[in-house]
Nucleic acid binder design. Sequence first.
DNA 1: TATGAATGAGAGTTCATTCAT
DNA 2: CATGAATGAACTCTCATTCAT
Lengths: 230, 230, 230, 230
Amino acid sequence: MIPVPKTTPKTTPGKAPGNAPKTAPRTARSPAGGGAASDGRRAELLAIAAGVFAAQGYDATTVRRIADEAGMLAGSLYYHFDSKESMLDEILSAFLDELWAGYEGVMAAGLGPRETVEALVTASFREIDRHLDAVAIYQREARQLASSQPRFGYLADSQRRFERLWLGTLERGAAAGVFRTDLDLRLAYRFIRDTVWVAASWYRPGGQHSPEEIARQYLSMVLDGVTVRE
Amino acid sequence: MIPVPKTTPKTTPGKAPGNAPKTAPRTARSPAGGGAASDGRRAELLAIAAGVFAAQGYDATTVRRIADEAGMLAGSLYYHFDSKESMLDEILSAFLDELWAGYEGVMAAGLGPRETVEALVTASFREIDRHLDAVAIYQREARQLASSQPRFGYLADSQRRFERLWLGTLERGAAAGVFRTDLDLRLAYRFIRDTVWVAASWYRPGGQHSPEEIARQYLSMVLDGVTVRE
Amino acid sequence: MIPVPKTTPKTTPGKAPGNAPKTAPRTARSPAGGGAASDGRRAELLAIAAGVFAAQGYDATTVRRIADEAGMLAGSLYYHFDSKESMLDEILSAFLDELWAGYEGVMAAGLGPRETVEALVTASFREIDRHLDAVAIYQREARQLASSQPRFGYLADSQRRFERLWLGTLERGAAAGVFRTDLDLRLAYRFIRDTVWVAASWYRPGGQHSPEEIARQYLSMVLDGVTVRE
Amino acid sequence: MIPVPKTTPKTTPGKAPGNAPKTAPRTARSPAGGGAASDGRRAELLAIAAGVFAAQGYDATTVRRIADEAGMLAGSLYYHFDSKESMLDEILSAFLDELWAGYEGVMAAGLGPRETVEALVTASFREIDRHLDAVAIYQREARQLASSQPRFGYLADSQRRFERLWLGTLERGAAAGVFRTDLDLRLAYRFIRDTVWVAASWYRPGGQHSPEEIARQYLSMVLDGVTVRE
DNA sequence: TATGAATGAGAGTTCATTCAT
DNA sequence: CATGAATGAACTCTCATTCAT
């Protein structure tokens, strides 16, 4: 359930067209200058929108509700964004960009299979901690968006890339005798993937456990099982 | 393999209040028989609705879409159901009723902790197989419904009951030396719970693996881990 | 606010066409024979409909509500009546027929102006007592029906006839020195007319006062005033 | 002639609860001023709505019809009002507020029973002249609204208060020997009440008689009767 | 930058009515 | 005579979006 970034600074071959980096207002009267202040407001509004999308679902969220929380009128949001959909787009692609930046760091480190799994899972929990709303939105909406809206094709791309990365790692591990070979690897892949990301549905930042601690325990269960070894 | 009774005809205690059996069309004098014919149509329509809800999300589903798939007009649905919401209600509560019937069969068998976990997981995968749409809907909508609509309070009740059942089993197992004691049991509970149910997002009935086979592999990973034991 | 009968046995010149006496079912399978039993059911259903129309207003009354009160399904009413509107039509025209039968009896008696007024008012209160629902419906709906639906043109006809009858009587009385001549007679007409018929909004049959007693007191006020005469 | 103060700015005690001043469009931060411009549009729309409600009846009036007359689309009305019902609410409560302001002025004047009756009737006809549509709506819908919708409970309150005021006045007059004592006072109350208000069904502002002239003639009939005194 | 007012499409729902059984 | 199931039009209301100011 995890996708490709919109803008990977280094290598993003086959990047979908019309997917240029999101920019500030595009109206005739768009603000002059670089708009650092403007970008601050944008980010603020996106955070608010993400919060509401995560809490109520994208469809059930009205643009007025977002505006209310931002202390403005619904129409005013359209100075900052093209549409409700483009807010969602920005939220999701910003999250994916960061996620993949993290993953690429892991892969670039050239670790062994088990260590790679540990690093990926830990990176994922960190991302959940930092982009909780985006992750929750992603979990709930991605499948549908990817399959029905061309604009969100990058979600499916990311999904595929994600699967390749994980399956590859698992296969390496199985070949190296680190992971069990009596399992259907696709099942194992889904098992680990879901196990990690669904945590977003109950995780609350600043809670009892740090993301790293949660990652540690999850890894312990996934890798070693919950039963006592004799 | 693990024996899991399908449905226990005996009792269904702990049934959420306000969850009375949904009734058929509002006639002045309801038909003398049980309304088997009518119920057939109802069930058919509910299955169609569940399919659309699962595919598009409850909010994004229009009542006209459901009617289209059923080959009737939107208004005609209201002969059978009070509202879109009550269709959702029936779908979810029918699913939960069956699920709990299965769970109660398991608990009544008086198995040991490990075998109980195995039986519960297997029962769950069977339920996913039988009520795939309902499970998918549940996953996507339950939290929000439970927290914002009194009518769906039984979802929260079920959730709590579910947690008690699982946590109790895990605690018994830990006390008995079957499960590891170095884990946060709540984390373990969530881990297993999510692990199982999210499978609904990719599972397709009639696919490569039977529900029992999937359960077996999941259990193997959860209980023993994915790494090779020395 | 009071109209012409649909079927006056003697003189009804200018009677609107297409206004034939309401009859029993008109379907292909209409019941054979005179249908005395059928007429009983019709009358019963009309009484029920009148009750609901009076209580909730014609527009706010659903055909299902009427059917519920009659212990049948909404569709079944259409065996007995063409439409909701034709029920209303029958209720109103039956009432007007009776009303005018009474009025004609009064006029045929050849009384003096004061005695004619007394007899008309008394006849009116008797009609309120017998056709309370119909009167209430008439009060609420007649103006609109008469002005917008050709089918109900007879309501306006009756209205005009009613005005002629009353104004004529008042004029006779004024000419004879029985009634005051310093009043606008149209105002006096409306005053008496409204005074009587609005009573339907609070009158309940079987209450403290009989229709005749209420008529007596009303007449006393209208004719002599509420202040003490020296 | 009888002096009747228009509006008493002082106090409006006995105002029905839950009848708070209706508010303007739901902005995030309501406009700093009083919203005079907005109120102008609101009042305009309410006048249009009142006209249609009065002409067709509340139930038979579609929101589209109101919008048409206002030169806008149906949905646009919802920028100004919560619902069709709240338009009705505002129309009725504005009318009642004004009516009671007038009545309180009369009662505060400390007149004798006969003069009080005269002043109340005159004030009522003035109100019919000023709020014709609202009065017509009130006549047609009040009973039902009051009895079935809690939101309109203030209608019943007003009714009761109205009865107390009139009955009290009549009783004072009877005790003082001004009004006849051989009448059922409740009947007399209803007689006068209905007599006055039903005038709204035929009264047209700017017609032959001024409200005051109509009041004079009505009072003359009610107080002295229509027959010639010897 | 934001507001206030509006648009227009479409949502869920109601309801009089029809008709085969 | 009545039922059960459906139709189809209309209704109230919601909401993303636009745009002059």
